[in-house]
């Protein structure tokens, strides 16, 4: 196994090699042990300063990154766009360069524009970790989803994973597709035709519009959140589906679907869950559900990513 990543930034899973993914998983396993010790901290990054720039709302990811950084003993500063000079019209590069001039070594960024971290990489001089860019990628989520499935059923080569729901607006879906495929897994996307990008087959995934068939096929299903905030916001736009009720009638994962599909796959959800919309409470909290493991693994995966990227920051 290689000792270091082939990339200097984590912009997306697309840029990672399969070996990179294995290396991140290898370290995440070790860090998971660390965060389960009585003292959950290692001193590796005590001379590194990390800025968490969140230009878009987030609870779980932000908390998870913060915890990961603290467990590695990094110094951190947090920034969220509300209540900042971004509201006064400062550009992204200016904002980031100002923060960097305070001697920051690494930037973890969430932004609503796809490609924002790539743009930043070209125009600033720092290590960048993408914590979600618009509808493009959310690499650490992709990694932690695979890691969680892998913990349960082992190597993903030849395993089947269905991603269900709003594929079109989901950065989690894209990162998951890349991450699963790079480990040799088969991927299927499932959802109403309006929420599946037209050319998605070009990525080598199967498309299925019937939830029962998708569940029957899969070893694990990743139920995405219906992003109510990214659906049609005014009367002029055409909605992607008639109503939430209609959506849940056709695409809600519930016991009835599992019985019809005669299969009991692992269930993942990146959160936050709309209980009763894409999944029933019963299944979200059930035995096959990995939801809470995903959150725990999230910290370990982010520790691994930050640790591996930090090892190349010059002193």
């Amino acid at each position: 196994m290689n000792n270091s990543l082939s990339v200097r930034h984590l912009l997306g899973i697309k840029q990672l090699t399969p070996e990179d993914i294995q290396l991140i998983f290898h370290h995440a396993e070790k860090f998971k042990k660390v965060i389960n010790q009585p003292i959950k901290k290692v001193p590796s990054l005590r001379d590194i300063t990390i800025a968490n720039l969140f230009f878009e709302n987030s609870t779980r990811t932000k908390l998870s990154f913060e915890l990961a950084e603290k467990r590695l003993s990094a110094d951190i500063v947090n920034f969220s766009s509300s209540g900042s000079s971004v509201k006064k019209g400062e550009t992204l590069i200016d904002t980031v360069n100002n923060i960097l001039s305070m001697k920051i070594d690494m930037v973890v960024m969430r932004h609503s524009s796809p490609g924002a971290p790539h743009f930043l990489k070209e125009n600033t001089n720092t290590v960048i970790v993408n914590a979600g860019d618009g509808t493009h990628e959310h690499p650490t989520q992709g990694l932690l989803d695979s890691f969680s499935i892998r913990e349960k059923i082992g190597d993903l080569k030849g395993k089947k994973v269905a991603i269900v729901g709003d594929i079109k607006h989901s950065r989690v879906a894209l990162s998951n597709i890349f991450c699963l495929q790079k480990q040799g897994a088969e991927v299927m996307v499932c959802g109403p035709a309006t929420l599946i990008p037209r050319n998605i087959k070009e990525l080598g995934v199967q498309v299925e519009y019937d939830l029962v068939k998708a569940v029957e096929w899969a070893d694990a299903v990743n139920m995405l959140r219906i992003q109510i905030e990214r659906q049609a916001s005014s009367d002029k736009e055409v909605p992607n589906f008639p109503s939430l009720r209609e959506y849940s009638n056709l695409y809600q994962l519930n016991n009835e679907v599992l019985i019809k599909a005669k299969n009991n796959p692992l269930i993942l959800h990146p959160g936050p869950i709309n209980r009763g919309v894409e999944i029933t409470t019963e299944l979200a909290d059930g035995e096959q559900s990995l939801v809470l493991q995903q959150v725990e693994n999230g910290v370990a995966i982010r520790m691994a990513v930050i640790y591996l990227l930090a090892s190349h920051i010059k002193r």
Partner: peptide, 20 residues
């Protein structure tokens, strides 16, 4: 002891971690 070493960021490549 990988994560406790005092030569992190002083070598070309990080040391591959082992199991505690």
């Amino acid at each position: 002891i990988t994560f406790f070493r005092d030569d992190f960021r002083r070598r070309e490549d990080p040391v591959l971690a082992n199991t505690t």
